[in-house]
Amino acid sequence: MDDFGKLEEISKGIRRDVLTMLNKAGSGHSGGSLSVTDILVALYFGGIMKYDPQRPDWEDRDRLVLSKGHACPALYAVLAEAGFFDKQLLWTLRQLGSPLQGHPDSKKLPGIEASTGSLGNGISQAVGMSLAAKVLHKRYNVFCIIGDGEMQEGLVYEALMAAAHYKLSNLTVIVDNNGLQIDGQCRDVMNIYPIKEKFEAFNFRTYEISGHSYKNLIDTLTTAKRNVVSPTAIIARTVKGMGVSFMSNRVEYHGVAPSDTELAKALEELR
């Protein structure tokens, strides 16, 4: 099995965990968790990010901010797989007292870099982390995943402007471009396109790739890390509900957990 094959195996396991967690929780965001899974797997298991699960507060670690916080089931499953906490915790998602909150909480769970969920605030905090690296003379990288629907929040553009102004070459913004949001297609709800030109206008070095191709993801993320001139944007074209045929590209699964029957069917597909 080649390296990408291994990542694909990991991602299947992550998707199975995500759906099982959501089914047990009885609520949560299936579609966006599945679309972002390969991006997260590439970052954490594709040799891109520098981290130590035994030392989640290690000063020189690379940071991942999931600005589209509602996709946290995928991040939780990835962090458990990476060894940040016991995998059994996954099955407590959204329950009273669980560190796995409905949206990521940096105070409760190791590996969560910023509390997010209120859209737009994550990317702006990521800019702060990138700027802090300059003050502290640190060489860490900051990766921030935003949703495409999130690009309707004005704060996103304030963050992009500041990132370019301060030449934050240690920052990479990844757009999980699955084309859908709660109320329908992004282009129908409030058109966010063109995306690439927007980032370019803000002086980001911008790439448009498939968010499900490990070769594309790892090549581009590696290039992004080497960029010392400007921040980088990666528009990752993804499929909402990726990996599960009956959830793929279906807006109904944005904020819905799979039923027992749906879970069984999905796990069958993800074997």
Binding site: S124, Q125, G128, M129, A133, E158
Partner: peptide, 17 residues
């Protein structure tokens, strides 16, 4: 951009400043 300023401050605090 006051909102951005406050969030950037948050990111800096999370990074030890």
């Amino acid at each position: 951009a006051e909102s951005n300023m406050v969030d950037i401050a948050a990111g800096m605090a999370l990074s030890g400043l």
